[in-house]
Computed example of a mutant assay.
Amino acid sequence: MQRPIRHFIHSARHHMAVGVTTAGLLALGGCGSSDPTLYSLAPVATTQPVMAVATVPDVIEVRTPGIPPSLDRQNIVGVQDDYSLSTLPAAAWSEPLAPMVGHVLAADLQQRLPGRTVFAQNDATSVPAQAFVEVEISRFARDSAGLVHLTGSLSVHRAGDAAQVLSVPLALTASPTGAGTRAMVAALSQLTGQVADMATERLQALPPAPSTDTRPQPHRSR
């Protein structure tokens, strides 16, 4: 009688061990499957003619955009409406949002301003900036109807001449080509390109740089 009981106990332990191992493998598999898909903004080509304007500063720095903590998070904000904000648990930005927007905006501007040097803040460069592009973003997602929004403000000024700032509010919208996250990120990239178009126009409209001629002027007698 003892042998069948011993055999039953051994069999029960074996099945229990198999069950624990299987549960562990399923748990590991579940952890792997929960990793979010990473998305990145991308530069877009301008739809406006590219013109060489002599008054545009030669070296331009794009300051890291100001983005509220509600948007500047790893998980992408999918819907941002009047009184609510929701993230996409299975979708995340590939890098912090603020510097990513700054680098994409700098790449967009470089394409629109051939012959100029454009870089993002904190990039390794020894060339001092002659002008600055500054962006504040307050909305950067879909609304409940599916439209994608980029709102905030844009300002441009020469280095050392903050009194001559050209500022404009941003209230840009786009209709994505689909309902997925990829389509939303593509639409946000297009809107960032439109910000670059607006920044280009304002860089071209900057007043001439003040004269740096420090030579002594001839004395004029009365």
Results as ranks from 00 to 15, higher is better:
1 M>Q: 11
2 Q>M: 14
21 T>V: 15
22 T>H: 02
22 T>M: 05
25 L>F: 15
29 G>V: 03
32 G>R: 13
40 S>I: 13
40 S>R: 15
42 A>I: 05
43 P>A: 09
43 P>S: 04
48 Q>W: 07
50 V>F: 04
55 T>S: 15
63 R>K: 03
64 T>R: 10
70 S>H: 01
88 L>M: 13
89 P>N: 14
90 A>K: 10
92 A>L: 02
100 M>F: 01
101 V>M: 15
103 H>K: 08
111 Q>R: 11
116 R>C: 00
120 A>D: 04
122 N>W: 02
127 V>F: 11
127 V>M: 11
135 V>C: 00
135 V>A: 01
136 E>R: 01
138 S>K: 02
140 F>N: 05
158 R>V: 05
158 R>A: 01
166 L>S: 09
167 S>V: 05
171 A>D: 14
177 T>C: 04
178 G>Y: 14
179 A>H: 11
180 G>C: 01
181 T>N: 03
188 L>Q: 15
189 S>N: 09
191 L>N: 06
192 T>A: 08
196 A>F: 05
197 D>S: 02
198 M>W: 06
199 A>I: 00
199 A>F: 00
201 E>L: 07
202 R>W: 00
206 L>M: 05
210 P>S: 11
216 P>F: 06
217 Q>Y: 09
219 H>F: 09
219 H>V: 10
220 R>K: 10
222 R>L: 12
